[in-house]
Amino acid sequence: MGIWIEEDAKILVQGITGKQGTFHATKSAEFGANVVGGVTPGKGGQTADLGVIQVPVWNTMTEAISETDADASVIYVPPRFASAAIIEAADAFKSVKGTGVIVCITEGIPTLDMVKATAHVRGIEGVRLIGPNCPGIITPSETGGAKIGIMPGSIHAKGRIGVVSKSGTLTYEAVAQTMSIDEGQSTCVGIGGDPVNGTGFIDCLSAFEADEQTVAVVMIGEIGGTAEEEAAAWVAENMSKPVVGFVAGMTAPPGKRMGHAGAIISGGKGTASEKVAAMEAAGIRCANDPSEIGAVLLKSLQDAGLR
């Protein structure tokens, strides 16, 4: 169980022969993820050496999915080619099997490219895009699990807490906090720090609400946009499971981009205090400090009779 990605999901790697693609595909394979092959245009027929396994390389996603019946694809191609890779994957999943999860790790994709790519994917039912500019998604198992992305596998363990976050390393921090109170994770999703992305907070929260393995959710937001406020309103109406949160950027000055392209307070909107206020009002307990997420989560689990 877990959301969208089963523990043994069959994974393709777009850009598998590039430096990033080879490195991270190897890490995933070492962790026990079921990497079944990759795609690099012009390198079809080659074999990619991932240390623990050797996997085939195809020229196109359509060939790769037809041959492997893959469930998911992870994209490590450079920013200028990434939106085309997303669109190719979406079309291939649609035509070959009708479903698929596309995880785009690439950072620095032009915003208007993502406007076009998300519009394309939105029109295809059954295909989901996670990212871009994100650590990826992981569903841990007893022996490893489906690690689709760049997160350090070793900090995770299978469990019952769902994690969703805009930030990379802050997701790891949240995972470490669940472990500090002896809780593992069902699925952890990094939705990414770009202004325009695929899957959002509400998609994740709604899937965690429906997932039998998940009993509570940790949600990590950051300044910029109004996604946290909208998620909070959704939680108040629809969520029965406890949600705890943290929002980064209380001290960020307006008008300055804080690393992530989307992390900017503009026109007085998108401040951390507004987000925390909206989340608290929706019954989401928020930590002031990421080191407190574990304690806040424990309290919520106890109040819900889960500990």
């Binding site: 930030s167 990379g168 802050l170 980064a248 001290t251 960020a252 690393g259 002031n288 990421p290």
Partner: peptide, 11 residues
């Protein structure tokens, strides 16, 4: 990491 960098400032 950008999120952790912001969180560090906050803390």
């Amino acid at each position: 990491g950008a999120g952790l960098a912001m969180a560090t400032m906050d803390v």
